[in-house]
Design a protein around this nucleic acid. Sequence first.
RNA 1: CGGGGAGUAGCGCAGCCUGGUUAGCGCACAGCGUUCGGGACGCUGGGGUCGGGGGUUCGAAUCCCCCCUCCCCGACCA
Length: 483
Amino acid sequence: MAEDERLVKKIAAKSEDFSRWYLEIIRRAELADYAPMKGMMVIRPDGYSIWENIQRLLDGRIKDSGHVNAYFPLFIPESFLRKEMEHLKGFAPEVAWVTHGGQEELEERLAVRPTSEAVIGSMYAKWIHSYRDLPVLINQWANIVRWEKVTRPFLRTTEFLWQEGHTAHETFDQAQDETIKILYLYKEFVESELAIPVVEGRKTPREKFAGAMETYAIEALMSDGKALQMGTSHNLGQHFSKVFDIRFEDREQKRQYVWQTSWGVSTRLIGALVMTHGDDSGLRFPPQVAPVQIVIVPISIGNWKENVLPVAVSVEKDLRRAGWRVRLDAREEFTPGWKFSEWEMRGVPLRIEIGPRDVKENRAVLVRRDVRKKDSVDLGELISRVKGTLREIQASLFDQALRFQRENTRTVSDYDEFKEVIESKRGFISCGWCGDESCEARIKEETMATVRVIPLKRDREDIGPCVCCRKPGRESALFARAY
RNA sequence: CGGGGAGUAGCGCAGCCUGGUUAGCGCACAGCGUUCGGGACGCUGGGGUCGGGGGUUCGAAUCCCCCCUCCCCGACCA
């Protein structure tokens, strides 16, 4: 974007320094701020408002699919975690421990939950006795602590918010169905509400959740060409049920271990919104989750308080009654032009300008944030036009992101081409893989790219030879450098 | 956790190397006036334990040591 077209010049240009842009826009747009403790952030009202929208829209889907919410403790006794060594090993380096209550040293350390499989498993053992108790379909909205070494606002913070579903079933097949059902629930949610296209697939053994039989994930491509894991769904098999002794009497009156799943998405999704849709002028939020969907800017000129403001106030009231999140910016200390830039920077999808000329003609100007197109509409049809325009913006943001994802997903046939693409273009690379961990490790070592997923849906049935060792390919894998 | 960089008014920075008036600039902020259809202008004004602690010195933003926080690049992760 040419310098004179850049309306917001106070932050780094996204196209020039993506990572600096990301950090600056989050603070300038007041989504979050650094807290004085390492790796911790404060989610400010606009950032939290997005989270509330995510919660509302996702929680509805989770409940509609038969799940219920509950809440489990923040602390987990060390002995509970120790019961499951493979799981513990996966998390050991990033567990925060509570050692004292007041002045007294605790007899047993308490882990601050890095995830809740252990506590929830211990409770399920008490609650589940018969096949009649199954399935158990519970979700919780909670905070999680993981002592990460490298942190970035929203993408990886020491404490973060998420939802974690934990289910228990009679059979492997039921658990597998649940795992896949949730994967697609996430995909549908992320694509239709966050307007972010994702690829759904299976994780390699190396990348899967510690303690899971299979991990599935949705992956998105950020606009700097790096991949971001947007959500995971695990088939836990009987791993935890054996450790925590979660058994039930089946239909043949035999004692069986339950089959479990767990799945989650986190406040990382907010970072994904920023990185997927933002541009050189700042944020661009999809209307479905935007903190403010419509901002009304009265053109303060002449005796606008008598002529223009009352119209703006009444428009605000109408839009609010129609159910939208509206903000009327009638502040006198800023010029209209300043407000235009400010609200664009903050990502408000639709702006309505009302000035003396419009009032005279009983009209208003609609300005789309995504394409900056201006449109004069009759006040009589404002509500319907707003409705249509917001829908168009939601669709257009998704389309733009999808086009980017497609343009940056490349099929390569040999390793040299793989290296060249990763180095110069980034993006997703689709290619054959022998399934051998040594090839996966070598590729990571040499290119910093990892298998993001083995997509569940493939364009073609034939799998090329392994991009690394040339042996016959067992999988068609999607590689990328990732956050 | 390793390598590199940084922390001075709300934000962005200068000053530090070579210690010495009252620590400075731009933006932001406050008051008044003129303005207002894409980040207006003039005048006046307020705001600082120089990240924190210790040390050296007659004297420290400046020199030395420790700690905290952030950024970038590498090893581990939603």
